[in-house]
């Protein structure tokens, strides 16, 4: 039996196809999100790579910011529940999840069964999100994929505000103008993201194992900064951008077999 999870975020679209609730048949990502061609393209790609049809899916569940606009889905579940489900499936020892996506930062606390005990989200502010890194990457002329490498070479991280993306951008511009090395600025940018995410994690109560997911988890500079701030190791979920879609696919499987509460 196949089930599908579709996670439509603000800046990317993800699909996971699951066989019998256990085997990941496809896990596709397209780096454009809700309101774009991303949702359709990622769906087509996942079906094409798996050789399956939409009709082969016993159930489809949508999640993410654009969850209510996915016509193919039978149900919508919030990304917080789906992240918890997906991450716990991959890392059963997870107790705290830090999820940083395009426009949201979330800290989620799990119980020993992987159920959400508490969660906190960022306010309506881009600071500390993937969008914040996008802006900094453009100003610094360093691609997102290269930022972790630059960070690893930093000798003296610069101070970058975590209050506001626009202020932080002008800080970065003036630091560049003052000749501060990009490596140090990028390490400062990562610390800024970490301080925002850790603020939410502290509210939740930090308990190990700590797992990071969401697109920003691919930037190991952010992962290092969060680990340093929390003074604890941080595990990056496998394929961290697709964990919510995976969770949605598991929920879909559970619903088909009647395992949900």
């Amino acid at each position: 039996m196949f089930t599908m999870g579709i996670d439509i975020g603000s800046s990317s679209s993800k699909v996971v196809i699951l066989e019998d609730g256990l085997n990941i048949i496809a896990a596709e990502v397209i780096q454009i999100g809700t309101g774009s061609t991303g949702p359709k393209r990622v769906l087509d790609e996942a079906l094409s790579k798996s050789g399956l049809k939409l009709q082969d899916m016993a159930k489809i569940i949508a999640t993410g910011y654009g969850r209510s606009s996915v016509e193919e889905s039978h149900k919508q579940i919030s990304e917080i529940s789906c992240q918890a489900k997906g991450v716990f499936f991959l890392v059963p020892s997870a107790k705290t999840i830090i999820d940083i996506g395009g426009q949201d930062v979330k800290a989620i606390k799990l119980d020993s069964k992987g159920c959400v005990k508490q969660f906190f989200m960022n306010d309506k502010c881009a600071a500390g999100t993937g969008r914040f890194l996008d802006v900094m990457s453009r100003v610094l002329e360093v691609s997102l994929n290269e930022m972790a490498e630059y960070d690893s070479r930093a000798t003296e991280p610069a101070t970058v505000s975590s209050t506001c993306t626009v202020f932080a951008e002008s800080e970065v511009i003036s630091q560049l103008a003052n000749g501060v090395a990009k490596e140090n600025i990028i390490a400062g940018v990562h610390q800024s993201v970490a301080s925002k995410a850790c603020g939410l994690a502290y509210r939740c109560g930090v308990e190990e194992d700590i797992v990071m997911c969401g697109g920003v988890a691919k930037d190991l500079g952010v992962v290092r900064a969060i680990s340093k701030e929390l003074k604890k190791p941080v595990i990056v979920a496998p394929n961290p951008q697709t964990t919510a879609a995976l969770g949605a696919a598991i929920f879909a499987f559970d619903e088909v077999i009647g395992a949900n509460k």
Binding site: S78, E79, C115
Partner: peptide
Amino acid sequence: ETTSFEQTKTRVQSFSEM
């Protein structure tokens, strides 16, 4: 002042599921 409630929707739906 807000006219966008997507974050509130996500929080409330997640809470309901929790």
